[in-house]
Design a protein around this nucleic acid. Structure first.
Lengths: 158, 158
DNA sequence: GTTGAAAAGTGCTGCGA
DNA sequence: TCGCAGCACTTTTCAAC
C-alpha cells in the first residue's frame, strides 16, 4: 500500500500575503503576485490549491453596485420570534425570500437579524408585509433603513 | 473634429444574465457563459467592458472563511452619536479601525450601524473599549453578537 | 451590435534541483 | 519542497457581416 504523504495544513505568512492581494482584487494574475512576493508562479498555484482544499477560500464573486441595477434601498431587520426554538424553521422559510441577502442568529433583543435589499420603498413594504410577516413564528419586526453605506470591505488579515 | 459615437448605456436582459452567472462564480470562463447564453465570446467581452465603464461592476473579490483564518466573532454595533452632525467626522475615524467591515448611516434609534469581525471575545472587548469608545462624538454603543450566519449571498437579479 | 478566428497572456503540470 | 519550462486554456483584439 502506498504511503500517502501528509499535507502541510498550516497557514503561513506567505499564504496571508497572497490572500490579502486577492481579497482586494481577485483578478490579479498569479505571475504578478509571484513577482511582488518574490516567489515563483508555481508556488502561488500550490498555495492557492492548499487554501482551497482547506476551505479557507470559498470562491470568487463579482461585486456589483446594487443602485446602478435599480436596487436603491438597503435595510436591516430585527426580527422577534415567538419562541427561540422556531429559528431553524423560520430560516428555512426566509431563505426563499431573495431580497434577504444576510441573516444572523444573534444575542440581544431580537432572535434574528437580517439585511435586505429592495428596489424602492414600495418594494420594501411588500416584502415586509407580504413575505416576511407571513413566515410562521415571526411575532414582529423592527426596520432600519440605510441612508448611506460609508464602509464596505473585507477583513484585513493580520 | 471626429464624431464620437454615443455608447449604448442601457442594461438589457443579456447583461443581467451575464451578471447573474458571474455573481455566483466570478471565475466562469467567458466561453462557457457564451455557450450558455448562445452568443459569441466576443459579445460577453464587449458587454463586460460596458458594465465596467458604467460602474455596475465594482470588481471581483475572493471570498474567504473568516473562521478558518482565526476570526471567530462577528458582531453588530448600534452607535449613538451626541449630535447627528458629527457623522462625517466619526466615520473618518471609524474607517481606521480595520475590524469594522461595514458601516451605515441609518434611520431609527442609532445614528450609525456597523458590522465588525474579531478574533475572539477579548479582541472584541479591546476594539469596543479602546478603539471605538475613543472616537469623538460617540455616546454609547449596543452590541449584538452573531451566533450563526445562516444566509450570506448577493441580490438575485430580476 | 455581433461574429469567428487569430494573437497575447495566464494557469496548469511534470521534471529537475 | 520549490522553481523552471512547455502545454492547454482563456481573454483580448479585429476585420467582416
Amino acid at each position: 500500500m502506498p504511503h500517502r504523504k501528509a499535507q502541510n495544513l498550516e497557514i503561513d505568512n506567505l499564504d496571508i500575503q497572497i490572500l490579502s492581494i486577492l481579497m482586494k482584487n481577485a483578478t490579479t494574475p498569479y505571475t504578478e503576485i509571484a513577482k511582488e512576493l518574490i516567489v515563483s508562479g508555481g508556488t502561488i498555484h500550490v498555495r492557492m490549491k492548499k487554501l482551497e482544499e482547506m476551505g479557507v477560500i470559498k470562491g470568487a464573486s463579482l461585486e456589483v453596485d446594487p443602485q446602478k441595477l435599480g436596487y436603491d434601498i438597503t435595510a436591516f431587520l430585527g426580527i422577534y420570534l415567538e419562541k427561540g426554538s422556531q429559528y431553524q424553521e423560520a430560516v428555512a422559510q426566509l431563505k426563499k425570500i431573495n431580497e434577504i441577502v444576510e441573516l444572523h442568529y444573534t444575542t440581544g433583543s431580537w432572535s434574528i437579524f437580517a439585511k435586505i435589499v429592495c428596489h424602492d420603498t414600495n418594494h420594501l413594504r411588500e416584502v415586509l408585509n407580504e413575505n416576511i410577516q407571513s413566515v410562521s413564528g415571526i411575532q414582529r419586526t423592527e426596520t432600519f433603513i440605510s441612508l448611506e453605506e460609508s464602509i464596505k470591505r473585507q477583513i484585513t488579515l493580520e
